[in-house]
Amino acid sequence: MTQPRAIDATAEDPAAVSAFEARIANGESIEPKDWMPERYRKQLIRMMSQHAHSEIVGMLPEGNWITRAPSLRRKVGLIAKVQDEGGHGLYIYCGVETLGVDRSEVVAQLLDGRAKYSSIFNYPTLSWADMGVIGWLVDGAAIVNQTVLAKASYGPYARAMIRICKEENFHKRQGYEIVATLAAGTPAQKAMVQDAVNRFWWPSLMMFGPSDTDSPNSAELMRWRVKRRTNDELRQRFVNLTVPQAAAVGLTLPDPALRYDAATENWEFGEIDWSEFHQVVKGNGPCNRERLETRRAAERDGAWVREAAMAHAEKQRAKDRSAAA
């Protein structure tokens, strides 16, 4: 149900805007055909398509190990997980489409480098242990984020998130099971998983985005209840959840500053290297070029397939029409 909206952004009725904001404040859910400020629509398209792109690009670092999974049980678990990420991208793209934008349009923005996606997926996966650590830390961080997004004010986004959260619980458990198995395994396996933790810990913390003091879109998204918690709040929640999980399997998180503050009941952590974050977001991460080139190749190589399917369907419809006439 995609009805392109004809809204003149320059002439929004202030009364309509305040009625809209009252609905949001009242905890109401906004649906595709409801009136919404153009800026709300734009922000949603930006945020949802970034989220969907992250799922799609996120298939690649883990897809990298599907053909090398060390047991058949691990192989099916990993395929199912990467497949789910494709599904989640699809659900969210469909959510974007309710705002009157074609999926092909936002995908084009990803492929030509205009759109962003989560910086975590620009890091390489170097060992099998990365499959465990990504499931545990990266999906763990994503779940913290998405649980809150399931209460977002835009109905289609919230509904997609509810479905996604249900499905993603298996991802984190799968990852943590791999981590726990390796941590209890041979010395080589244990070294492998510790190395993976060392590489992915800080990038996982960066997944929550810039600090609140430096997050350009946060305030507006919070006011419109697209976001419900700040980046820093969510990051802290993730750290608090993860520290005991690391201890339980005897792994060390690579942060000497990590310490428990009994007064706040928080695990305090060290300074995040935001220059690295900004470099990766700008396109200078270890795998940015490879990831985008891989997506472009899939799009390019699939063009003749998509065209053929469409041409076939058109032929069939023409036949049906002449038979019905």
């Binding site: 349009e105 998509r306 065209e307 469409m310 419809r317 029409r321 019905a324």
Partner: peptide, 20 residues
């Protein structure tokens, strides 16, 4: 007919996007 409705509804977008 149903066929016509489906054919109209499933019209291809200008950019080659498959119907929704």
């Amino acid at each position: 007919t149903n066929i016509e409705v489906a054919a109209q509804a499933a019209t291809i977008a200008a950019d080659g996007q498959w119907p929704l």
